[in-house]
């Protein structure tokens, strides 16, 4: 039971370096390719959004930016707070593998009801004049999708934290605080990059954010 929990939340005790980098890169590419078909964008270091169609390279670039930006910020944080020696391949490899739960996001994007139900909910609060309807069943499915997505995001962040702790041999408050600060900074940095690079994809013709993000 304990070993099973370790494999779910801290597989890096057994897998790191090139092995984790290879598995992680494969999963990231799969996330991008499936995202291309379901219009699911990776729009933050540990988040996803159901948005507009775009070329495949956009989906691949989004996944890569999310991974590289967080790894670089964690590298900086680790260098500041840790005295331990480390290998870059362990940091980038474990952070790549930590993104594995995000594979669920593009799969959840397939029902294609997310955007419609989001617009339906928004129209309840901000009447746009559009006649948008959603059945009770669609709303229930939508809520389940959101709950699964939130679980996947929490799982991803837990994996990212455990990978960071292991790579820099950090424990306790020092590990938690430095990771939290790094995660927030990386998320902000990645979000700015996404908006700058993919402004046309995230904004609809009216200039509004046409995106459901987690």
């Amino acid at each position: 039971m304990k070993t099973k929990t370790i494999w779910i939340f801290n597989p890096f005790l057994y897998i790191a370096g090139w092995q984790s980098l290879t598995i992680g890169m494969t999963i990231m590419l799969l996330t991008a390719v499936i995202g291309y078909f379901s219009n699911t964008h990776i729009d933050g270091v540990a988040g996803a959004g159901f948005g507009l169609p775009a070329p495949l390279w956009v989906f691949i670039t989004e996944v890569m930016i999310a991974w590289i930006v967080l790894s670089l910020v964690l590298l900086l944080a680790g260098k500041i707070v840790s005295k331990s020696s480390f290998r870059l391949v362990d940091l980038f490899g474990t952070q790549a593998l930590a993104r594995a739960p995000m594979l669920i996001a593009p799969i959840l994007g397939f029902p294609q009801l997310n955007q419609r139900v989001t617009k339906y909910i928004l129209s309840k609060f901000l009447p746009t004049g559009e006649d948008i309807t959603a059945t009770q069943f669609e709303i229930v499915v939508y809520v389940i999708i959101i709950l699964i997505m939130i679980t996947a995001v929490i799982w991803t962040i837990t994996l990212m934290y455990n990978a960071y702790r292991l790579c820099f041999n950090l424990k306790g408050r020092k590990a938690g605080l430095s990771f939290a600060i790094a995660l927030v900074c990386a998320h902000m940095l990645a979000s700015i990059l996404f908006i700058v690079l993919f402004r046309d994809i995230y904004l609809n013709p009216e200039g509004l954010l046409d995106f459901l993000s987690y």
């Binding site: 897998i15 331990s84 480390f86 474990t94 292991l166």
Partner: peptide, 14 residues
Amino acid sequence: LKLSYPTVRNMLDD
């Protein structure tokens, strides 16, 4: 030991 490299390196550091 069937452990990852950073795990063993951390054991040595500790």
